[in-house]
Nucleic acid binder design. Structure first.
Lengths: 227, 227
DNA sequence: GCGCCCCTTAACAATTTGATAATACAAAAT
DNA sequence: ATTTTGTATTATCAAATTGTTAAGGGGCGC
């Protein structure tokens, strides 16, 4: 569950360069941002770094295999909402079932048809995105993601872009603690590097403009939205 | 919480009685409520009548085929959140893509493995109900890893980061004795080195804040969580 | 160019946290 | 009974983290 308007990020992990390339090419063509990993350990590192929305994992990989990677990632709350699809060389029923039970969202058997892959990816995102509509309402607070407008107790409130995106992110999952890392990735993106105090300042401005204590600090962890 | 605890209803539409029966049997075994339809028109009627959570549609059916049924249902807002899976006799790439673009959530090719089918169904529902993730409940104690919250007998309790992680670790496997070493590795990491009394102090703070004796000391070994 | 607003950063204040030392206590071993 | 080993408790302090304010660069419309 990421911001609706941002480009979806996909991590692909496979030890066969050809497959990696084919998938990457097709998904990029479709408008996705793609990161690739050559083995399980790289996949874990890159997942932590980029926080992708979807991870496509080959089951058979040197180092850690796909199922192990999935298990490791699923243990971390940060990856709760990350979609995971497995790839397998043969129709290996045992692995399929095991993979799905590990917490994967779907399964593809090689040889892969690029069209089917792209369709599946689109279908998964379509389903997930149904939940975050453009209009969010929590108590007296209305957030219109499309119109970029905030309304609190009937009064329109003007927020700057970063402020808006930050609030929209937090309010999208009330109660959930967003790590500073997560916030940076979602609002600022992975390439931009900003100082430590930047988030604080924006949080402060939001608190000031809304004039209420809807954002709680969880020291050493992050921030959460709560009415 | 609403839909999560209720029994999921599944509608299956296929013109082959054998397949219908196999699928029905396996899904019922898994605890799902199953309704069956023999053709496309029946499927639409039954969908309206029962409002299933998931519809499994054979593509090749007399009357209306699966894709037509899907199109018709997707036009109605009532079925916005209904999951749809297609079945197809052969790996027919064209139909697959068309089906997924029509708004299906997944795709299965015959011959169907009951285990894979059940796994896929479970995986889909798991994704949709992502509510029960990261939530731990032992007796009166609720630990929400995502929200970073502890609730004991209805009262929210604020724990600092280390305290929270320590409690979450122990409570993750009630009854298991965690060696001091294990705790250090999990909560503090392998690089950090802290004194011997550090754990004790944190344990004490947890006991104090929860105001109950849920953590038992196993002298010379470690600690365990137990209500 | 000028003014305005957004974003970032620096600098400092305020706060919280986590580690340790010191002491007290309890149980097992001698 | 005494020593030893291991844990509980408390207070204290340094480090980590966040809050706050102000200031400056850069973009944008006028």
């Amino acid at each position: 569950m990421s911001a609706a308007n941002t480009v979806k990020k996909i991590l692909i992990a496979d030890d066969e360069p050809d497959i990696l390339e084919i998938i990457q090419y097709n998904l990029q063509n479709e408008g996705y941002e793609v990161v690739t990993a050559k083995n399980g350990n790289d996949a874990i590192d890159l997942a932590k770094k980029h926080q992708p929305n979807l991870i496509i994992l080959d089951i058979m990989m040197p180092g850690k295999n796909g199922i192990e990677v999935c298990n490791i990632l699923r243990l971390q709350p940060v990856f709760n909402d990350t979609l995971i699809i497995f790839l397998t060389a043969l129709s290996d029923e045992g692995s399929e079932v095991k993979g799905l039970e590990t917490g994967a969202d779907d399964f593809l058997t090689k040889p892969i048809s690029p069209k089917v892959l792209v369709s599946k990816v689109n279908a998964l995102f379509r389903r997930v995105n149904k939940e975050d509509k453009g209009l969010l309402q929590i108590g007296d607070l209305k957030i219109d993601r499309e119109k970029y407008m905030i309304n609190y107790q009937g009064n329109d409130i003007i927020l700057a872009r970063k402020e808006f995106e930050l609030l929209a992110l937090l309010a999208g999952k009330p109660g959930k603690v967003f790590l500073r890392n997560e916030i940076l990735n979602q609002v600022w993106g992975t390439e931009v590097i900003v100082g430590d105090r930047t988030i604080d300042v924006h949080i402060r401005k939001i608190r000031q403009k809304l004039n209420m204590d809807c954002i709680t600090t969880v020291k050493g962890v992050g921030y959460k939205f709560q009415i």
